[in-house]
């Protein structure tokens, strides 16, 4: 007994080190099982407030550019309005609406890591919950991962965990949007497109209909380069993003009102299968 205690006292620093290292490893690897790292993210109160404070100061420097983007978007929407591309306004009531759009602002952005997260200034009080889609006026941005009362973190498409259904515009050939070359923050990769699909550099990539998070046809980017992958039966496509990931301010959060129903139905079908 004496020896055990002596041992503990002698190596207490080392044991403390091991203990703390173990804790950090647990935090690090637990998060692989999705949303268990509930408090270790920047959507909590303290970091949210500090980021809001810093954003309040720095956002002034980009006001003119931000304004131009909003005017540009208004112009595009007006074009559609006057050309009657949208449905008649009378058709829109609460029974035919599938998506609800909420607005927010980015208060912290990263794009240099392997898994990038964006912190936004809307949270559960604004009815933001996990797995809602986040877009900008130019294109897709990511998916809400963690929420607190007033803030949320968004898993950026620049993350090696990100996997989003995408397709080539005006066709139904779909694949998965991933980020493999994790140093280039303006290029993501589209995989699993069969080789018989005709491709041209410059083709537009949009979100596909398979997702219960994003509506169909949200712009993502254009084809920059394509090649066959190792199996020689699928393409490996570099997609240049429409969004400048280093410069995002105002964002829209998409709430799919049918998501719960879709997921329940899918779960039920899978359960019946077994």
């Amino acid at each position: 007994m004496q020896q055990i205690i002596n041992f503990l006292i002698r190596y207490k620093i080392f044991l403390l080190y091991l203990f703390l290292l173990l804790i950090s490893f647990i935090f690090t690897f637990q998060s692989h099982s999705y949303h268990q790292s509930k408090f270790l993210n920047s959507s909590n109160y303290i970091s949210g407030s500090i980021y809001t404070f810093s954003d309040n100061i720095t956002s002034y420097f980009g006001l003119r550019e931000e304004n131009n983007r909003l005017v540009e978007e208004n112009k595009r929407l007006r074009d559609r309005l006057f050309n009657n591309i949208l449905l008649e306004p009378s058709n829109i009531d609460s029974t035919t609406v599938d998506y609800e759009i909420l607005r927010g602002r980015v208060i912290n952005n990263s794009y240099a890591d392997q898994r990038n997260y964006i912190t936004i200034n809307k949270g559960e009080n604004d009815s933001i919950y996990q797995d809602m889609g986040v877009i900008t006026d130019k294109g897709i941005l990511g998916i809400v991962e963690n929420t607190s009362d007033n803030f949320s973190t968004v898993q950026s498409i620049l993350s090696d965990k990100s996997n989003i259904n995408a397709k080539i515009k005006n066709s139904n050939h779909f694949g998965s949007l991933v980020w493999e070359n994790t140093t280039d923050y303006n290029v993501v990769q589209l995989i699993d497109i069969p080789r018989l699909v005709p491709l041209t550099i410059g083709d537009t990539i949009v979100t596909g209909a398979m997702s219960s998070i994003f509506p169909e046809d949200i712009p993502i980017g254009t084809i920059k380069r394509f090649d066959l992958d190792n199996s020689k039966s699928f393409y490996f496509i570099d997609v240049e993003l429409f969004n400048d990931m280093t410069n995002i301010g105002n964002i829209y959060i998409i709430k799919n009102l049918n998501r719960k129903e879709v997921l329940e139905l899918e779960a039920e079908t899978e359960a019946n299968d077994q």
């Binding site: 290292l21 950090s24 980021y51």
Partner: peptide
């Protein structure tokens, strides 16, 4: 110290692990 930086930059507990290593 590492953990606080982690919380702010959404890096799980990577900074904490690295910092505690050099501290030791």
């Amino acid at each position: 110290l590492g953990l606080f930086v982690d919380i702010f930059s959404d890096t799980l507990a990577i900074n904490a692990a690295a910092t505690v290593t050099i501290a030791y």
